[in-house]
Amino acid sequence: MDCPDVRELLDAYALGAAEKREAQQLEEHVADCVRCWEELTQAQQSAALFAFSITLQEPPTSLERRILARAAQERDAALRGSTPLLRRLRISWPVAAGAFGLAGAAALAFTAFLQVQMSDLRDDRDNLMQQVAEARVRLDDQNQIFNVLFDPNQQTKMMPAVATGSSAWGEYHWSKTAGQGVLACHDMPPLAEGEVYQAWFVAQDGQIPAGTFESTDGDCWYPMEPARTPVGLTGVGITREKRGGSNTPGEWLLFASLRS
């Protein structure tokens, strides 16, 4: 098949109306002929546009639910099949979620990212994002993490342990542009039965509870609620409290000063 033959057949091929043998010959030709390949691309676009001529109807809304449920299920199954390393990325979600609505716009939040354990992946943003996506992260929170990660200007603040001898440490990443962030803590002292970690904002006029969360292995990530960021913020910290949270912070486990 030479170029003129191919040109004659292109439209029929793009519409799926070429005979099998002809179609094969055409494919062989365009594999080596850039010009015919370009023409074919054009023809395929025209053919696709043709689909627009039909009467459009919506499928039942139940179909969307079915498909999304299946997609979520498959993603979770992929996670279960993943390595222990990836599973470590599981985020512990706030128990007292009530303290935290969704939504909210700007300000500060915390991200914590896989420091030590993930150092081999650290340079590879794509990899990192994939892992976050595969982790059991609530979708809204996942989006928050993406927003922070996608921001090239994201900032990081170390949260050192307050008690001497503690190996715990934390970090948060936050994006001014996204107005979001996520907190991470590592090697946290274990929780006793009925205890939770509690995050705090420290502002000029006091300490403000910022949600509680748990972890079974001492590693946790916690997205902060930006809408609740107080004015005059001077620090953030984490304590260990009775389940349900406290109104005044106990002993600081981690604390970062935000005074500039």
């Binding site: 689909a51 627009f52 039909i54 009467t55 459009l56 109807q57 919506e58 499928p59 179909l63 969307e64 498909i67 999304l68 997609a71 979520a72 993603r75 992929a78 994002m129 994939q130 976050v132 996506a133 595969e134 979708l139 996942q142 989006n143 993406f146």
Partner: peptide
Amino acid sequence: ERIRYRDLKAFQALYRRYTALVYSTCLR
């Protein structure tokens, strides 16, 4: 791009954008 990172919300948005077209083409 986001779907590559398993972002379900992106998947939902894509679905909503094109479901009528895909469904109608299949139905046709």
